[in-house]
């Protein structure tokens, strides 16, 4: 297990390092023109030169890579360099703040959004997937197939607006203001309001994935359904519910874990759209508003954060699978 763990972690570290170097390459490309990318909107020529000096843009690329990864010169008193804690992700001259602070400030919103959506997504996908497998070929299977087909063919940009229109606008018009249209309340200040504000974004983000994963679960469960231990479980006198939801689902979970890990990692992409539609002030909104404003350091900072999230989730799901199978990682 120790060897397996070391191998998985060193692969993850290598992937992260290459990702960071690639992002450094993008940064170099962007900083060729500091005026367009970095300086505040109404900066003078001296201001632009000062920005370039503060970032030591005149030094050779390997020196800059060193600054970027290990320890760069302080910019406006903020520490730079990714291998510190917290990592120095650069400085936004547009917002006059370190990118790390901006991101740490928004992370709770996005994590709340993703965490709740993941719970709903897997609850739906596993229950509906096993239900369909259990009733293979019958109306339940067709019904859940039709639902997942609609989920899969409805992109997030569409489902988000529809959810907001039906569950917020129409309900409120009908005198049932159950959900607010937008905004975020911190979990620590009021858990009930937190859930109420996030309910619609959770449903939206979960729906996109639930359709696909319902089918994956169904397929995975049907794959193992014919095996002997399922027959044994039934012969022991276990009820159908336990046979399907405990034994078959437990045995067939691997593809769901592998794909699920990757998809949770990439969920920040979907979070951007969801946060835009529901007016949640999270990482996605920060990224998109910075991109539209041309604030490159913030955009690349969120890219690195999301990339690290993907690496973390794929590594965790690999390790989970390895622990389930008790055999070396491939």
């Amino acid at each position: 297990m120790a060897l397996r763990l070391t191998k998985a972690l060193s692969q993850a570290a290598l992937t992260l390092l290459v990702l960071l170097i690639a992002c450094f390459g993008l940064t170099r490309l962007a900083y060729q023109n500091p005026a367009a990318m970095l300086a505040p909107r109404n900066a003078t020529q001296e201001g632009i030169a000062a920005v370039a000096r503060a970032l030591r843009l005149d030094e050779p690329w390997y020196q800059q890579l060193w600054y970027y990864l290990w320890r760069g010169p302080d910019v406006q008193g903020a520490k730079m360099g990714l291998f510190n804690w917290p990592p120095g992700l650069g400085y936004s001259f547009r917002k006059q703040a370190p990118v790390t602070d901006l991101i740490l400030d928004k992370i709770p919103v996005t994590l709340s959004l993703v965490a709740g959506a993941v719970v709903l997504w897997f609850a739906w996908a596993l229950l509906a997937g096993v239900w369909a497998a259990k009733n293979q070929g019958r109306w339940q299977d067709h019904l859940s197939g039709a639902v997942s087909f609609v989920f899969m063919a409805t992109p997030l940009i569409l489902s988000g607006i529809l959810v907001s229109y039906v569950l917020f606008y129409q309900l409120t018009q009908a005198g049932w203001p159950l959900f607010p249209s937008s905004g975020y309340v911190a979990l620590t200040s009021d858990p009930w309001q937190w859930a109420r504000h996030l309910a619609l974004p959770w449903i939206t983000l979960a729906m996109v994935q639930a359709g696909t994963f319902q089918r994956i679960t169904r397929g995975a469960v049907l794959d193992v359904a014919g095996h002997d231990y399922i027959r044994t479980a039934r012969a022991k006198g276990l009820g159908e519910g336990r046979v399907w939801y405990n034994h078959a689902l437990g045995a067939g979970l691997n593809p769901v874990i592998t794909l699920g890990g990757l998809e949770i990692g990439t969920m920040l992409g979907g979070a951007i759209v969801t946060e835009t539609i529901f007016g949640l002030d999270g990482l996605g909104r920060l990224a998109i508003s910075s991109a539209l404003d041309g604030d490159f350091p913030v955009v690349i900072g969120t890219t690195i954060t999301a990339g690290a999230g993907i690496i973390l989730m794929t590594t965790l799901s690999d390790l989970w699978i390895a622990a389930r199978e008790r055999r070396p990682l491939s």
Partner: peptide
């Protein structure tokens, strides 16, 4: 696979 699609597109 570690590159997030939408965010990389935003960067580019």
């Amino acid at each position: 696979i570690a590159f997030p699609f939408i965010l990389t597109a935003l960067s580019l």
